[in-house]
Design a protein around this nucleic acid. Structure first.
Lengths: 259, 259
DNA sequence: TAGCAATGTCCATTATAGTGGACATTATGT
DNA sequence: ACATAATGTCCACTATAATGGACATTGCTA
């Protein structure tokens, strides 16, 4: 069971970045190795290499390490080129303003729903959310779209069992999740209520390429109580934003995004 | 000469990220391999792995790849934790406002001077500069501090010969560069004129830990003509900012930056 | 249509890097 | 003071991943 599988250096390096990212704070190399269940010698070697390239940085006086300046630069470069983000931001802002609710742009990263951009609504919100936050796919409205067309085998492999649970209680089954996904695709939008939080609901709509590939998903988050009265309005608003973003994207594609 | 040195996967992966970063645009995998002088098969394998982890993303319909969403998230996490940046930004802003000149916060990344944050001055500037921009160390005022205490052997290895040249003409020798560096350390600040651009000058001052390690360098960039009349004033302003940033940093250290 | 270059996939070989474990050093607590 | 844990370094071994090259596919142009 504890068969010490030998992983590639790149894999280990990514695990290091992910581990630091998930902990959200500088860690001692030893602690890091323990947290990822990797050999200490390996992690020491790799951190040394990564620090040499400024992908990791030393923090504080001691031996704590964390995500480095190079990653900051990569992130900036991403923003400059990932036109979808820059182009969608003002539209998301407008969504939040028109609806008064929190609007988000989400993406599928490592089989988690991941907030890339968020605009706060009028509502004084107890439930916080920031770019970079990640949630289990089965508990989110956006997740319904990310698993579209993915076979069950893959889903079982990639989405961990605990992602169907909240506070130790199962919220949904894979079968229900898939059924939800099919329904969402048919009607073009997805609604979820009380999954990730008993008092929260969400409506989501995908942004796709012409080929049909899903790029991201936009959506609202709001108190469950508001759902019945506003679902239609939210869907209408999202549809407008969806059209606007996709039009902007394809006109950008026309002009050929660089050689 | 063309001895095909076998590199580690991690090393190759970093080369891929750097290559994309430097080109600043999505590239076809083949083109990428050619640009970095690496075996095509290797680059195909690695890009596949990196795309699977969202560290690279497909761009456009075709096979072009570029820095991915995951890097964006890492970058955000870096900003959240790298208190130096958040803490220095308002101070840099103030510097630019008080002096009327462009103020920058720079760091040493891969032996290049790299702009992490910049505040524009009053001056309508022809010479642009953005966070993420990188310059050869020998041509920058900040570079004087980054090579402090580094032995000549290392410098020869890490700083490529062309970094001493501008438009094919040598601007400075390693010996002069080192002499500059020693002088800068003695007087606590560094002045450079007409190196990276015939009509530009810069004044810089380091931000160090209590241990003396250089974290970053702050500085002004302005027309060479202004140097004589304003050097003293700039140094004075920088000294104030330096003290302020370092005080904020050490008080932060006191309260222990997380376990 | 054929010809040629660019792009993407696959596989056997072997240099090398990930691993485990021993050792050295530094903190921490009693 | 001692004991114990935590942290960092070093090294021999071998599983494995980087490599070169062959092959398949697509796009372009003549």
């Amino acid at each position: 069971m504890v068969k010490s599988s030998r992983e590639s250096g790149l894999e280990r390096a990514i695990q290091i970045l992910d581990c630091l990212y998930e902990h959200g704070r500088p860690m001692v190399v030893n602690e890091l190795a323990a947290a990822m269940g990797a050999p200490r010698s390996t992690v020491y070697e790799l951190t040394k290499a990564l620090i040499g390239r400024s992908i990791l940085d030393h923090y504080g006086d001691g031996g704590r390490v964390y995500l480095g300046r190079k990653l900051f630069l990569y992130g900036q470069a991403f923003q400059d080129e990932y036109s979808l983000l820059g182009l969608a931001e003002p539209i998301i802002d407008l969504l939040a303003k028109e609806s008064g609710e929190r609007a988000e742009l989400c993406s599928n990263v490592d089989w988690k729903q991941c907030v890339l951009y968020m605009a706060e609504g009028q509502r004084p919100f107890e439930y916080k959310s920031y770019p970079g936050d990640r949630y289990p796919l089965p508990l989110t409205a956006t997740g319904r779209f990310f698993i579209a067309g993915v076979d069950e085998e893959t889903l079982r492999q990639r989405i961990p069992e605990e992602d169907y649970y909240l506070n130790g209680r199962r919220r949904i089954t894979l079968e229900q999740f898939q059924a939800d996904s099919r329904k969402a695709q048919e009607q073009g939008y997805s609604v979820v209520s009380g999954l990730v939080d008993p008092y929260l609901a969400a409506v989501a709509m995908p942004i796709t390429e012409r080929s049909g590939t899903i790029l991201t998903v936009i959506g609202f988050t709001f108190p469950s109580g508001e759902l019945a009265a506003n679902e239609e309005r939210f869907v209408h608003l999202l549809r407008g934003a969806q059209a606007e973003i996709q039009a902007a994207l394809s006109s950008l594609d026309q002009r050929g995004g660089a050689k």
